[in-house]
Amino acid sequence: MLKVLLSRLGQAALVMLVVSAVSFVMFRYVGDPVATMSRENASVEEKAELRRSLGLDQPLVVQYGRFLGRTLRGDLGISYRNQRPVTELIAERLPATLELVIVATILSLALGIPLGVLCALKPNGIAARLVQALSLIGISTPTFVTGIVLILVFAVSLGWLPSFGRGQVVDLGWWSTGFLTISGLKSLLLPGITLALYQLTLIMRLVRAEMIDVLSSDYIRFAKARGLPTRYIHFRLALRNALMPVITVTGLQIGSLIAFAIVTETVFQWPGMGLLFIQAVSFVDIPVMAAYLLFVGLLFVLINTVVDILYAVVDPRLRARSA
C-alpha cells in the first residue's frame, strides 16, 4: 500500500512538472503583456523598463527556473492586471468555485444514484422511460444553454432566484461561504443545477448500467435463492457493487467540474476561479493563467490519487493485491 502510495506521489510530481512547463511555455507565446499593460503612448524606454521589472528580458530557461522556484515557495507571481499576488487572488476566488462544485457534486449524486437505481429496477416503467429520455437531453445540452434557460425561467420570468453573483457571503477566516445566508444559498441553486446536470445524467446512466449488470450476476441470484428480502438485495447488496465505478467517475468528474466551471461561472457571473481565468485570458494576464492551469492540474492529480486509495478501501480484493 505504502509503495503504491509513494509511486503514485512520484507520478503526481512528474505530472505536475510537465503541467508547469506546458503552462509556462504556452503562455509565453500568448501575447505580449507589456503591450497591454503600458499606456498607448508609452516610450520604448518605459516599455523596456516594465519588461525588465517583470523579468521578461531574461532567457526562457531562466524565466522557467525562476517560475518553478517561486511556485514551490508558494509564490505564483503578481497579476499583471490587478498588481496583486496571484496566490491571494486564487485564495480569494477558491471558496466560490469549490462551494459551487460541492453543491453540483452532491446534487448529481443525490439525484443520479436513485434515478439510476429506479431505471435499473423498473426498466420498462413510465418513470424510468421518462428519466431516460430526459437524461438524453441533459447529456446533449451544452452547459451555457442550460444556464441561460434556467436564468430565463427562474430569474427573469418567475423572479424566484437571483441570476448572478454569490449573494451575501459570510467570512470564516479566509474562507468566504455562501452556505450560511439565505441569499447565498439561493444564489448557489441555479449555477449548481447547471453545473450538475451533465454530471447527474452521467452518474444516472452509469448506475443504471452497473446495476443491471450486477442484478443479473450469480451472487445476486444466490441471494435471491436464499430468500433474502428484495429491498435488502437491491439496496444493501447490489447497490454497493454497482457503486464501485461511480467512485472513480465521481472523482474524475470533480476535477473536470472545477475545470469546466469556467462556462457556468461566466454565465452566472460567479466570482470563482473560472471567471478569474476568463478575465485573465482577455487581459493576457500570464501569471494568473499559468497559476490557474497549475492549480487545476494539481487538483486533478490529487483527486485521482485519493480515488485510487478510496477504491482500495471499498474493494477488499484490491486491498489484498497491494498488500
Binding site: S217, D218, Y219, I220, R221, F222, A223, L237, R240, N241, M244, V314, D315, P316, R317
Partner: peptide, 8 residues
C-alpha cells in the same frame, strides 16, 4: 467463484 458477493 461468482455466487458469493466479492464485497461482503
Amino acid at each position: 467463484m461468482t455466487s458469493l458477493n466479492p464485497l461482503f
